[in-house]
């Protein structure tokens, strides 16, 4: 098996290295990837959406439909993990309660985590809300929020984290994020525009079309952040405890 693999790798490697010769050199502004659509985005997106962060503008406005279903993929992955691992209710339901003083608990770790978690969450909210003007957005902010909860679950235990954020709400919010995203698009459809054409929000909110694009993007980014936060946390608690949601790692 190892020999066959090495032969396949060698042949493929030679083919790919030969093919790489025809690719444009690194950093060439005239490379095919950089001369067609991307220049339009760079030159026009600020005029059309009033969002200086072009990555966010393309992600949440021009390619919003794509991003909606990326979020659905994340949601489906979270549900799949739940279906595979989560055990059916036990005969004796376990009482979930925090146990801060269990033997072996590390007081330095727990204090550091307790100080860090609110800072992480504040920073994550900044990343989500300021994703139009600086690097950031729903995916990044959602991952930081999820990491803060995972840190809590790691330094204390899963039961304690679940006491703060119950599994029922984790799942409700993960679906709610996707629904918020889709609802923002459906309102546009209802008002006679295309799906996710945020300009339709202008009359509802009493602002200009340009500002409506910016606000619509903020709305969908919040939806993405909620889903990513809940799915990251749900993935961790299910994987770390093997579906039991007890102490975990």
């Amino acid at each position: 098996m190892k020999k066959t693999a090495l032969i396949i790798i060698a042949v493929l490697g030679i083919l790919l290295l030969r093919a790489a010769e025809d690719l444009p050199s690194w950093g060439d502004p005239q490379s095919p990837a950089s001369v067609h659509l991307s220049n339009y985005y760079l030159e026009e997106s600020y005029e059309e959406t009033s969002v200086p962060n072009i990555v966010t503008a393309v992600l949440a406005d021009y390619r919003s439909y794509d991003t909606l279903f990326e979020t659905v993929v994340i949601f489906c992955a979270g549900i799949t993990v739940l279906l595979i691992l989560r055990r059916t209710p036990r005969r004796w339901p376990k009482v979930i309660s925090p146990r801060p003083n269990r033997p072996g608990a590390d007081i330095i770790l727990q204090t550091a985590a307790r100080l860090l978690v609110p800072m992480m969450q504040l920073f994550a909210l900044y990343v989500v809300a300021h994703g139009h003007h600086s690097p950031g957005g729903g995916f990044q902010g959602g991952v930081i929020l999820g990491a803060s909860l995972i840190l809590l679950a790691l330094s204390y235990d899963i039961e304690m984290a679940l006491h703060r954020f119950k599994e029922k709400f984790v799942l409700l919010f993960s679906a709610g994020g996707v629904l918020l995203y889709a609802a923002i698009g459906l309102v546009c459809l209802y008002l006679g525009r295309n799906f996710l054409a945020y300009g339709a929000w202008a009359d509802l909110l009493g602002i200009s079309e340009l500002a409506a694009h910016s606000h619509g993007m903020l709305g969908v980014e919040i939806g993405v952040a909620i889903t990513v936060l809940c799915i990251m946390f749900s993935l961790y608690i299910d994987l770390a405890s093997g579906g039991d949601l007890d102490e975990g790692l």
Binding site: V55, L59, E70, A77, G142, L235
Partner: peptide, 20 residues
Amino acid sequence: PLPHVLMLTAIVVGVSTLGV
């Protein structure tokens, strides 16, 4: 910006599929 947009979502989706 285009490759950045595509990879931004690919990274998060990659983490989810890794979870599965």
